[in-house]
Amino acid sequence: MSRERILNTAIVLGLIVFPLGAWLAQEPFLITLATKAVILALAGVGLNIALGLGGLVSLGHAAFFGIGGYAMGILASHAQSYDPILQSPFLIEGSKSMPVIWPVAIIAAGLVALLIGALSLRTTGVYFIMITLAFGQMLFFFAISWPAYGGEDGLSIYVRNGFPGLNTLDPIQFYGLCYGVLLIVLFLVHRLSQAPFGLALNAARQSPSRVETTGLSPYRLRLVAFVLSGMVTGLAGALFADLNRFVSPTMFSWQTSGEIMVFIIIGGVGRLFGPVVGAVVFITLEHLLGGLSDYWHIWLGGLLLLIVLFARGGIIGTLTGRKVAHD
């Protein structure tokens, strides 16, 4: 068994042991932190499909994260609204069921990713980065100017959505649900990377001209990867909104896109568990250093500087001593 596989197994077990220990110690806040890390890791896994496999540096993935969050918020807000005159709840079109909300969030994010990708992928390099950033900011300002769903103040969901057989208000059960979703997506992404599509996408990243000679279209390969990436990130956005029971335009901000990319860089670009390690490190630093200073990002910047200069394989690449083609 390779060192990277051993490390991945340790990460999977660690994400079980830590929340269980917090549950036994009756520390729900730590479980919530772990849940946040798992959900953000899922968003990183989504971006890693485009960045790690396709070599697409996107600064607009917060667009899909926000689309997923607002899909959840809009459906949940319409599922049960409050009438101040009748002083009683009344049901209108919507849903409070996660198995219903998730497909809507995934499809909505996928459609937006298809539109953005179809236009953005006609460019390369810094132009692609700036176009994706522009689309994300367009949606950010649209959300701010959308008073029907809170505008700049955001939209509160007072009761977390339900999942059959689970009490999602119980922190450990909601964590288990999010953890299960993460494992499923990681398995699917692993299979995707080993499938003919993943191999062709990797080849298109390294030498598009050679891929064209085989009759494949690098543009179509990248577009499919971009859409799949957006769909996974949209699912993460729906879960994140459910965790906080709140959606706001900040989910669309370029800072959110940057943070998702930071997860991948810290853990290792192109590593299956790179975004997971990066999200855990980010949330840990935020929790431990955020209480000491509002400027804790200085230490995060120092860590990123060290990784970029001396450990381009990220934490996983450094610990395993294994490099990938684009390190």
Rank of each mutant, 00 (worst) to 15 (best):
L7A: 09
F240G: 02
L243W: 06
E259N: 05
I11M: 11
T35V: 10
G44D: 08
A279G: 07
T256N: 08
L319E: 01
A225L: 04
R220S: 09
L15E: 03
K36Y: 15
G198E: 00
K323C: 02
A105Y: 01
F246S: 09
G176P: 07
Q80L: 15
S95T: 12
H326N: 09
S88Y: 07
P99W: 00
G290Q: 13
G302I: 14
T124I: 06
I184N: 03
S97K: 00
R191W: 04
L133I: 00
L121T: 04
Y295T: 06
R322P: 10
L75D: 08
V211I: 09
P89C: 02
L304F: 04
G66A: 12
L166Q: 13
I144E: 01
M138E: 09
I172T: 01
V100K: 00
L183W: 04
L188I: 12
A236Y: 03
Y82H: 12
F263S: 01
R5H: 06
V159E: 03
A134D: 04
F174H: 11
G314Y: 05
G110E: 06
Q80W: 09
L15H: 14
G151Y: 12
L306E: 00
T320M: 04
P84T: 13
R191D: 10
T233M: 04
A109H: 02
Q87K: 11
S97N: 01
F163H: 01
W23T: 15
W254V: 12
F282S: 03
I283G: 00
V277M: 01
D327P: 09
F273S: 08
V281N: 03
F263A: 00
D153G: 07
F246H: 03
A76L: 02
I131C: 02
T250S: 15
G151R: 12
A118H: 05
A200H: 07
H78M: 15
I67K: 02
G162C: 00
W299F: 15
L272Y: 08
P19F: 14
A108V: 12
F142D: 04
L24D: 03
F197D: 05
G73D: 05
G136C: 00
E259P: 08
A203G: 13
L177Q: 03
E152Y: 04
L86C: 07
V38Y: 11
S95W: 06
V112W: 07
F174Y: 15
I129T: 12
G268D: 05
V45D: 10
S293A: 13
T32M: 11
W254F: 10
V227F: 11
T123M: 13
I49K: 05
L239V: 06
